[in-house]
Design a protein around this nucleic acid. Sequence first.
DNA 1: CGTCTGCCTG
DNA 2: CAGGCAGACG
Length: 578
Amino acid sequence: MLMTVGSGHAHTTGPRSERAPERSLSLKRLQSNRFLRLKRTVTSMNLSPAEQSDGCEGNRSEQMLPCFRRSAYDEPLAPYNGSVISHLLRKTIHSKLSSLDMLYCANESAATDEEQSGGEDLSVDVEQHLQAKRARVENIIRGMAGSHGDPERDCESARSRRDKRKQKLPLHQEPDAKPKSSKDEECHKLKEQLQSMQRLLHQLQEKISHVYDSEGEPKPGFSGGSSVKNLQETLKCELTRTVSESIDSVFKKLAMKPSASPEHKPSQDDSRSEVSDSEEVSREHFESDSQTEALSLVVRKPSQSQMIPGVKRPFPLHQTPFQFGYSTPLHDSQILEHLLKYGPHSAFSGLPCVTASLERSSPDSMEHSWESVAMRSKAHHLGQHHHHPAGLVPVDSLCLPHVKMECADLQSMERSSFMALNIQEGLTPNHLKKAKLMFFYTRYPSSNLLKNFFPDVKFNRCITSQLIKWFSNFREFYYIQMEKFARQAIIDGVTDVKDISITRESELFRALNMHYNKANDFQVPDRFLEVAEITLQEFFSAVSLSKDSDPSWKKAIYKVICKLDSDVPEDFKSPSYL
DNA sequence: CGTCTGCCTG
DNA sequence: CAGGCAGACG
């Protein structure tokens, strides 16, 4: 397809029709890319990770470095075997159960540790409280285990203990109006939760052992078997998350039941029967908050009034859920199921987009502006830390009363998806950062490639073109720099193309690195230096030969450069990359 | 026509 | 980097 340099260019400096050859190039590019990929795959089969990390065989010391300096994100990689899993499970379940314990007691007795330590001396009471607590947990566990114990009797005895304890408490001693059947139901649901959790875990265990058996040795990858490592990390992460999710559900049910109708005075609510004065005040405050914003999904400032007293997260919530290497206590069994079905690198775009609804429900005009800002910031910064002061759980995440019951499940689901994958309708600064790093590998990504490498983005026409626009802008900057430095080289008296090279010390490289890798926390692949060098040489030659008199002189260069795209490492496919 | 692309501008 | 524009498609 011949390009015509016609009237359209009379008033423009650039060749308008560069697009045409570029389009016809894309097919060829695809083909050559496929060749390159095949070739690289074949030649890298028996290379050590370091050797094939950039696909070239130079001697520079950088090549012995891992492609990614991600040590800050990597936890020491323990031997990957079943015991790790078991350990994780034990750890998580244990911490979960202690939380369960605390929550249960909080709802049952509503006497928090804080209140006890802050109030008058209740040490005797504390003693009894702890005993009752232990007994109740035992009851729960007995119930879940499906033993032939008499749950009614157990509950009865627990209640009698509670009643006994109630006599020592000064205020708000409401009769226990909760029907016994509710307790049974509770136990039953707990049991079901546990069983389904066990099923999921079993599946995951199988999956893991399968993966581990078939990939016991890390296969050479672009960055040194990192895809396997990634998978391991993913699985580890998902396992932990699943356990957490399951137990959180139990958690949630317990939290929800006793206080399902918070908008009303606590009188008919048995679990709230033992609240202290201070808590009563807090609840007043809470209710007034709820009226302004009863259904908001905004993460509310976790002030004390909105915390379940005495309930503490068994693990810190400030961990970044999007970085592998941390065990991530998030809630999303969907993800596990997806993982089981499709593996860790599949796109999750089928999940509901929650960001939009979250954002829609948090208009700027809202009273708690800093909260909506916080949420907005979270929504737009994949990988931001979820920080809750003192490890307390915002009631929101426990589906507490200010959220209508019929919405609870949906909200939980949406929030879970949001927290876990952060499926985006818009692109975030982190996406931009990632795109820039990807530019070190590919200057001309296809929209399919982009879709594959941004699995946490809900693609639509707009998003796609925005991403493409980004890369277009990246190229623009890249080529401008190239031209600038090529002309400078000529001015500096360079005559031979051979004298042109680009190292990591080069000014040009610094400029590019500053642009695409501002934080300088990414080890730029050597291949990029080669491509940049070739580009610079192309520009140098062209300008030297005065080809720049042709309005479309750059087109020929683009044609060369677009063939030099590399594969983007699999690591980038992770939605949690960065 | 709508879509896509590159160039230019702010 | 995004918006706007113009040319090139199908």
